[in-house]
Amino acid sequence: MSIQHFRVALIPFFAAFCLPVFAHPETLVKVKDAEDQLGARVGYIELDLNSGKILESFRPEERFPMMSTFKVLLCGAVLSRVDAGQEQLGRRIHYSQNDLVEYSPVTEKHLTDGMTVRELCSAAITMSDNTAANLLLTTIGGPKELTAFLHNMGDHVTRLDRWEPELNEAIPNDERDTTMPAAMATTLRKLLTGELLTLASRQQLIDWMEADKVAGPLLRSALPAGWFIADKSGAGERGSRGIIAALGPDGKPSRIVVIYTTGSQATMDERNRQIAEIGASLIKHW
């Protein structure tokens, strides 16, 4: 067993022997301040990774656009098919120029040779490549099948209805392509620590998230040296922004954090800054 596999296998073990965790309302004060600064709703939840206990939450059962955070769930569904012998990570998928959609920095470079399922998941999570996500959605049967996968996990809230990039439209009061912070946090925890996926697939999923290259201005910008984070960000229309993450000190994750916002007129930089400040408060009061 590799060191990384050992780390993920012992996530519940280490967490069980940690000192009790206590909620700190100071972080919620910052979440509410972010709402004021952005002029928009902000949803927040913080779960203990081992027990699933909610440590703090704000608007945990209000719907927010998922945006690209759905790509972690998508690759979880792909990995479940791999575990069941219905898919192979090494299978190569070929596609054409007509398949390319807006923001496809990886797939646009491989029109000639195609990409493997493993490479597509890596591109979808680490670079948020939209064509990679659409190609992977095709392998599982489309958005409705991802929703069905989530329902089978016990998540009857999260739903995907459309493809990239239309799913980022974020129309107010439109339930399409949305989740709730509580539902997303619980589902992410199941994917990373539950028995739904094999140990190898859980490790692969967290490795992809740990290698995320496009979430630097968010929670990662607030992390002290030595902290662990595996995350996936999302951005959408109407001032929408979000991030889902597993993080913790001492090089291992111990909490799940989900943050979503929508309806702001603020710039992307300002949305990023507010999420980073929430992260800084979380870490300060850990």
Rank of each mutant, 00 (worst) to 15 (best):
T158M: 02
A211W: 09
C121K: 00
E62K: 05
A200V: 14
M180E: 12
V117S: 03
L111C: 10
T139C: 11
D33E: 13
T198V: 08
L167N: 04
G279Q: 02
M209L: 08
S68W: 00
E175F: 10
G76N: 00
T138K: 15
P60Y: 08
A230R: 01
T178Q: 04
K232S: 00
G114I: 02
E145C: 11
T112H: 14
L205D: 02
A132G: 04
H110T: 06
D48H: 07
P25Y: 14
L160I: 15
A230P: 00
S51I: 07
G39F: 09
A183D: 07
R238Y: 15
M127T: 14
R241D: 03
T107F: 00
A182P: 06
E195N: 10
L89A: 07
S57E: 12
F70I: 07
S264N: 08
D129Q: 00
W163E: 09
A132I: 01
I256F: 07
A266V: 13
G242C: 06
A225M: 15
M127I: 11
E210A: 10
K213F: 09
A123E: 02
A222D: 07
C121S: 04
L38S: 08
I275K: 02
G141V: 04
K144P: 11
K252W: 10
G52F: 06
A77T: 10
V106K: 07
R63N: 07
E270W: 08
Y44M: 09
V42P: 01
K53H: 14
P217K: 13
D269Q: 12
A280N: 15
F70D: 01
L146Q: 04
L223V: 13
I206D: 03
R271Q: 11
G226D: 14
R159P: 05
A266I: 09
E210R: 10
E210W: 11
G114D: 04
V101I: 12
V82K: 06
K190H: 15
R241F: 01
P224Y: 04
D33C: 11
T186D: 15
A230F: 02
P224K: 08
T116R: 05
L38V: 07
A123G: 06
S128C: 04
N272F: 04
I45H: 04
A84V: 12
G154M: 05
P65Y: 02
L111K: 09
E270R: 09
L136G: 02
T267D: 12
Q97P: 14
I140G: 04
P217L: 09
L219F: 09
